[in-house]
Structure formats: C-alpha cells, structure tokens
Design a protein around this nucleic acid. Structure first.
Length: 558
RNA sequence: GGACCCGUGGCUUAGCCAGGAUAUAGCACCGGGCUUCUAACCCGGGGGUCGCGGGUUCGAGUCCCGCCGGGUCCGCCA
C-alpha cells in the first residue's frame, strides 16, 4: 500500500533528477509530512554543490519530473520543497485491498532467529525480564508480518553457577507445591542463604558444575530436571502473555558436541590469544577494550562467553539475520562478543539493548528475593481490569467479563512495555501499572470492538464504491490504514517495536474520529452506507492486524 | 578512572540514526458533549529557553565538542 505509492514517487522524482543531470541517493530522502503525503528536501542537499538556491533547484527538478501516475495524483512545488499527493485510485485501492487478509504481510523474505527472554532457570520472570520478553516477542511478530521466516529461541543457561545452586538446593531442600518457577526460586534463595552462612559448602557447587561440564550422567539428569522444571513455570507465564518460543537451545550442547573446542582452536589460530596465569585470553586492546576476554579458565573449564561464541557461530551458520534482545547490563560483554566474532569472520548479531526496569527502592534481584514477579503483576492487573469491565458492562455475564478482563490485562501490560523506546530506563510503579484510564491497549481494543459491533449489526456488505469516501475523516483514516506496511517495514529493519505501538494509537484515533462524525448504519444514500461499511471493515482488519502484531488480543466486544 | 544509554510542558512520552515548512501524544488541570452505530470515546483551553554552554550549517530537538544530572557496565560470574 503506502510502499507502492512511495516507489512511484521515487520513480517520478528520479526522472526529474536524471533529466537535470543530478545524481543523489533517494534513500531516506522522502518523508511523511503534515503538509503532504510525501515530501522531499533533496533540493536543500543539492544546494551547496550546485551553488544555487534550494528554491531554484526544486523548481528545475519539478519541471523536469515525470507526469502523475497510477498512485500519485500530483506533485506541488512549495518553495524549496516538492510535495506529493496520493491519487484517488490509490485511496480506493487501499480500501479494496484492506477488505482481505493478504494485505497485511510484507515482501521481505529469508530466515531470522530471534533470541529473547533467556532468563536463568532459577526463578520466575519478574517485571524486568518481561521487558525483554515483550520487546522480543513483538519483534518476532513484526518480522513475521514483514515476511520473514522467524525462529523464536530461548537460550537456556544451564551451565552457570545459578543453575548449579538450584541443583544443590533441590538436593538438600524440598520443593514446595507452588508454581514450579516460584518453588525453584525459594530453593535458590534458601541455598544462597545457607552458602552465606557456611561458605565451605561452595566447593560442593563447584563440584556439581565440574561434573556437569564433564557430562556425568547422574548430574546431567539433575541439572536438566531442575532447569526444565523452572522453565515449565516460566513458559506458562509467557504463554499467558501470548509469548511462545519455537525452540530452546541449551548452552551445554555446545560444550558436549565439541563446538566450544572448535571455537577455541579458531581463536588460537588468529594469533590473538595469550596464556596468562594458565587461562586462555583474547586480547582486545586494539579494539579499544581495556580488559582482555577470558576464554578458558586455568582449570580447563569453559566460560559463558566461550559457549556464547559457539552459540553465535551456530546462529550465523543457520540464519540469514541474527537478532537478540539483551538488557543494558550486557552491553559491554555483547560488544566484546561481537568484536571476537568479527575477528573470527563470523556474522555478528543485531543486538537490541533495552535499559533497566527498576523498583522505587533500587534494582531487582532474584537471588535476594527482591522482585515483582510477572505472575503477580498480571494477577493484579487482571483483577483491576475485571472491576473496570464490570463497571462498564454490568449486563454481561461473568464469563464474558472474565474473558475481556484477561485480554485487557495482557494487552495493557504488553502495550505499556512496548510503547516506550527500549533505550529509556523505566521505573516500575503499581499505580501506573494498574491505571488504564490513560492511553493504553484498551483504547485500541475498544476501537476494534466498535468496528466489530457495526459490522455485526450491518450483516453482509453489498458491493461498494470506495470513491464515495471523500470527507476529511474518511480520507485521514484510509491514509493511516495504508501506512501499515510502511510501519512494519521500518520497524522490521530498525528493530524498533515501539514504532508499531505509536502507529496503533494513531490508527485507533483516526477510527474514533470517523466513528464520531460519520454515521455508518444510518448513512444515506445506501451507496454511501456500503462504502462506509467497507471502510469499517478495512479499519477492523487493520486494527486486528496491528493488535495481533503487538501480541494483543482483539475482542469483538468489550 | 574508562565505556555506553538517557535528559523534550507538573508527570510519562514520539520525533534524533538519514538536520528543513506551526515540536507528538497521553495523564493531571479548566470548560463542553451520551433520547444518536459501545462515552474504555470525542471537542475546546491553559501550560515548552526540547538539561546547560559552545561549534558546524542558509537552517539544529535532530550533527560535533565540553559540562551538569540520572541509569548501566568494567569478575578465571552469568
């Protein structure tokens, strides 16, 4: 839709530039503008080299440009700007194409792996983790919309000290009957407390780690049982938020199948490694890193980073795009990892870093038992949502109110997380979390429900003529619907899911205005009624596709 | 000490990478709108030295330098 219009504008503009003998990249030279459907400022950029005023240059290009085409109605010269406007047939085409299901998928292709969440299997997800999960899952959904074949993967850190602590805890303490991830957290926290009191026990944990790495069958069974138990709880929380992983990759796999040894050999062959105090290290001072990267301990065991290098080699070999979502605390290690990969000639991942979620009294910690779990958050938000639904729809039965409350709660939590740019640090606050009077998912869900309600009352739509949709509200809405493919395309390239959240809000706003000022069911003559019904259906489809891509359910009634 | 991220009306926030035409929304505040397709909605109003200071440019919220404030990291942990 919008991308088609944009390509035609590029063609027309390029013709003008060519005829004037000018050459400039059209990449990023067309912008959305409040003054036009697309606008270009190329004249400004050409001005210094040509030593002519932008206004004169724009005029020259303008008069040399190609004639209007199928989707482009006209171009206008406004001082140094050249503005482009959509044709009526473009708007008509948007409404027609938006009636169907295939209008919401992009033209990108290829395979992508997106790693997200990957929390240690030592307890439940807390409100910091789910920022990772929501950003990650939304990116997965955006990339799928864009046309990629996407694998969403959870990387299980089973070789770390945390998991060994959990195993030690399970050996010595009983798991209670609570949700698996919460039960594991209790054991993990208790194990830490015991270790603090009796530091001599730490050797037992070291021994567990050593035996696991050497693949002692008895220990392997214990580690994997404990980790899987924790993950089963984590998974159920994720599912509640409409988040699904296609696969789990265990870091131990890379140690046992020889990938880690292979990576170490590759690194040694670069001649960049040094043996210091018996430990193998990679010197990255040339690349601006103060500290060298330790690859293998003096005792011969591997480190997280080494296993991570092997994991990234595997990703690079199996997928065309490698994407991962990491917390800000991983910035440095991730940069070191990417540098090491570059030295090895392995494709580097595209890393989405999100800043921290803190509590009013500091940062969260599973080990210290200081966190607000995602389960707790969802329960509270759902409770609040149920109160709201009951207040607004008292005539509906309890099943309805519960179902809507669930959808609204998950939507509110996801939207509140995804709407802010990943590089903004945030503070968790119960008051804000439980307040969805403010701009939030229900605003968008509600627009969708309104559209559904009209369609339900209308019954089947006869033939329609989109050309009858001519007032400001109708046209603004059609243009916003058309923008869907542009937003997906950009968000998929830049990996910025908050752009879609902004779009969702704008789309709902435009629909609400149309809804407020243009009656549909009572519209006369009947031809106008049919055209508006078609626009409602187009809007419903656009809202539904947008919400789906945000991982938010779109109730037909709420 | 070094590195990275952030700083936009009272609060939250878009725009910054690819500099251009009146700076985006929400909350809160003041006022208005339900005999009309669901008012979880809509309309109007007030409120901004885009942290501060320099620089580049015809033009800077956007780029560069310095400073201030907040966050994060700098382990033979993960």
């Amino acid at each position: 839709m919008f991308l088609d219009f944009m390509s035609e504008v590029e063609g027309i503009l390029k013709e003008g530039l060519d005829r004037c003998g000018l050459s400039i990249s059209l990449e990023n030279s067309l912008d959305l503008s409040p003054h036009a459907d697309l606008s270009t400022t190329v004249a400004f950029r050409l001005s210094p080299a040509l030593k002519k005023s932008p206004k004169d240059i724009a005029a020259e290009i303008y008069s040399a440009m190609g004639s209007p085409s199928r989707w482009v109605d006209r171009a206008e010269l406004v001082g140094p700007y050249i503005n482009f406007y959509m044709s009526r047939s473009f708007l008509d085409d948007v409404v027609v194409r938006a009636q169907g299901e295939d209008a919401w998928r992009g033209r990108m292709s290829g395979s992508v792996i997106v790693e997200h969440t990957s929390a240690n299997p030592d307890g439940p997800l807390h409100v910091g983790h789910i920022r990772n999960s929501v950003i990650g899952d939304t990116i997965v959904r955006i990339l799928r919309r864009a046309g990629y074949s996407v694998e969403a993967q959870y990387y299980v850190n089973d070789m770390g000290r945390q998991t060994a602590m959990v195993v030690w805890g399970c050996d010595h303490l009983a798991l209670d009957g609570s949700k698996p991830d919460h039960a594991i957290a209790r054991v993990y926290i208790a194990a830490h407390r015991i270790m603090n009191e009796r530091p001599e026990l730490a050797a037992e944990v070291d021994e567990l780690m050593r035996r696991y790495e050497s693949r002692d069958p008895e220990i392997v069974e214990k580690f994997q049982r404990a980790a899987k138990y924790a993950i089963s709880g984590i998974e159920s929380t994720l599912h509640r938020m409409n988040i699904h992983h296609d696969s789990y990759k265990w870091e131990s796999e890379f140690v046992w199948d020889g990938s880690v040894d292979e990576i170490l050999e590759m690194l040694e062959r670069t001649g960049r490694t040094v043996l210091k105090d018996g430990a193998l290290q990679l010197d990255l001072s040339e690349e601006g890193f103060e500290k060298s990267l330790v690859l293998r301990r003096a005792d011969g065991t591997t480190l997280y980073t080494t296993r991570d290098l092997a994991y990234h080699k595997w990703k690079a070999e199996n997928y065309e795009r490698v994407v991962e979502v990491l917390g800000a605390d991983h910035k440095l290690v991730s940069a070191q990892l990417r540098t090491a990969l570059r030295i090895l000639g392995i494709k580097e991942p595209e890393v989405v870093i999100f800043e921290f979620v803190s509590l009013p009294d500091g940062s969260m910690s599973t080990r210290r038992g200081k966190f607000i779990s995602a389960d707790e958050l969802l329960d509270e938000v759902e409770k609040q949502a149920y109160i709201e639904v009951t207040k607004r729809r008292p005539e509906m039965d309890d099943d309805f109110r519960k179902e809507v409350a669930g959808k609204v709660a998950v939507g509110a939590v996801r939207y509140d997380i995804v709407r802010v740019s990943a590089d903004k640090a945030t503070m968790f606050d119960w008051k804000t979390a439980l307040d969805f009077e403010k701009l939030s998912a229900p605003f968008i869900q509600y627009s969708h429900a309104r559209a559904c309600s009209i369609l339900k009352r209308a019954g089947d739509i006869d033939e329609f003529d989109p050309g009858l949709l001519r007032d400001d509200y109708e046209i603004a809405l059609i243009k916003k619907i058309a923008e869907f493919d542009l937003v997906i395309d950009r968000a998929a390239r830049e990996l910025k899911p908050h752009q879609l959240a902004t779009y969702a809000r704008e789309l709902a706003e435009r629909f609400n205005l149309f809804y407020r000022y243009d009656p549909v069911l009572d519209a006369r003559p009947n031809e106008l009624r049919n055209a508006r019904l078609a626009l409602v259906r187009a809007s419903r489809n656009a809202l539904s596709a947008t919400l789906d891509t945000l991982g938010i359910e779109a109730p037909e009634s709420m």
